[in-house]
């Protein structure tokens, strides 16, 4: 009797071919993007979304063409922070057009796409087992959305990853070999521990991790132009990963993000941000040479 490997194809549905085609569509949509940079942390509540927005704006100030993809399917966070929440999904040249802030920073929130459309609730036929397939389902949806967008040509696409060590790793693997990662951490023992675990998992998978940005490195007092301490000094040592920059918590930046960035609002960058951006660009250029 024939064995599995003697039989060509799967009898008609071509499931493997379809999954491959989905991947190819995603890769093709991103073909004009020079650097796909995943911003991950593993740990939630480290101010990753705000920091990603700040990085995006900083790259724009250097004249780079930049977009942010908010890969968290559970909330329209980045679009909301950019004040682009009401932007409709309009056909562009070869897919959906990217909504842009006045400074030209493009923002796509998966959450705002799914809001009102189908939620990711799985049919409740296998009660208790949903979690088994949820990750696959979320990544598939993300892939299909990425493939549906007219990214055009971009210098940098920043992907704001959902929290979670395993999720960071799954996204890095799913989005393919050409992505690079930047890990965001905060100076606490817990955060450093979680991010260290993320880093170890990513390295096992041979993902390219460019460096770390330490967020909430103090509290930025704008009026006095001073950085005040925010956390007690952590006991745990720093991660063995190049430090791209240290950015203090900037209440004004947080307030503008919360308020959906009113169109007339301008904000000078918090200390450390511009340096982090310069170091990121250098690391990207170096990674390009190595690749």
């Amino acid at each position: 009797m024939k064995t599995y490997f003697d039989v060509q194809g799967d009898g008609g549905s071509g499931i493997v071919a379809q999954v491959t085609a989905q991947r190819e569509a995603m890769t093709a949509a991103l073909a004009g993007v020079r650097h796909v940079v995943l911003i991950g942390s593993g740990k939630g509540g480290v101010g990753k979304s705000t920091a990603t927005m700040a990085l995006g704006q900083s790259l724009r100030r250097r004249g780079k063409t930049v977009a942010i993809l908010d890969a968290d399917l559970n909330g329209p966070c980045q679009a909301q922070m950019a004040g682009l929440e009401g932007a409709p999904w309009v056909p562009g040249l070869r897919g959906l057009a990217i909504p842009r802030r006045r400074d030209g920073l493009g923002v796509v929130s998966c959450g705002s796409f799914l809001e009102g459309a189908a939620s990711l609730e799985l049919p409740s036929v296998a009660q208790g087992d949903e979690h088994v397939w949820r990750a696959t389902r979320e990544l598939t949806t993300l892939g299909q959305l990425v493939a549906s967008i007219d990214w055009g040509s971009l210098d940098v696409l920043l992907v704001d990853l959902p929290p979670g060590t395993e999720s960071t790793r799954q996204h890095a693997a799913f989005l393919g070999p050409r992505v690079v990662l930047v890990l965001l951490t905060i100076p606490t023992d817990v955060a450093r521990g979680v991010v260290a675990r993320s880093l170890a998992a990513l390295r096992r998978d041979r993902a390219v991790v460019l460096g770390q940005i330490e967020n909430m490195a103090g509290y930025y007092h704008r009026a006095e132009e001073r950085i005040l301490p925010l956390f007690p000094p952590p006991r745990r040592g720093e991660l063995e990963l190049p430090l791209l920059g240290r950015i203090p918590f900037d209440p004004e930046l947080a307030r503008l993000c919360d308020a959906g960035w009113p169109s007339d609002a301008e904000l000078s960058p918090p200390p450390g941000l511009e340096e982090a951006t310069d170091n990121l660009l250098q690391a990207l250029a170096a990674a390009e040479i190595t690749a």
Binding site: G12, S13, G14, I15, A17, Q18, V19, A21, Q22, L122, P123, V125, A126, D129, E130, V132, W133, R134, T136, R137, T140, T141, G143, Q144
Partner: peptide, 29 residues
């Protein structure tokens, strides 16, 4: 069974004769 159904649906693929062709033509998965 429901577990197997979930496994397939979570991949966002079409099932049925000629499914790959329909999917390639941009059919909703």
């Amino acid at each position: 069974n429901p577990m197997e159904t979930q496994a397939v649906t979570s991949l966002g693929v079409q099932i049925g004769p000629g499914a790959a062709e329909r999917a390639a033509a941009g059919g909703c998965p």
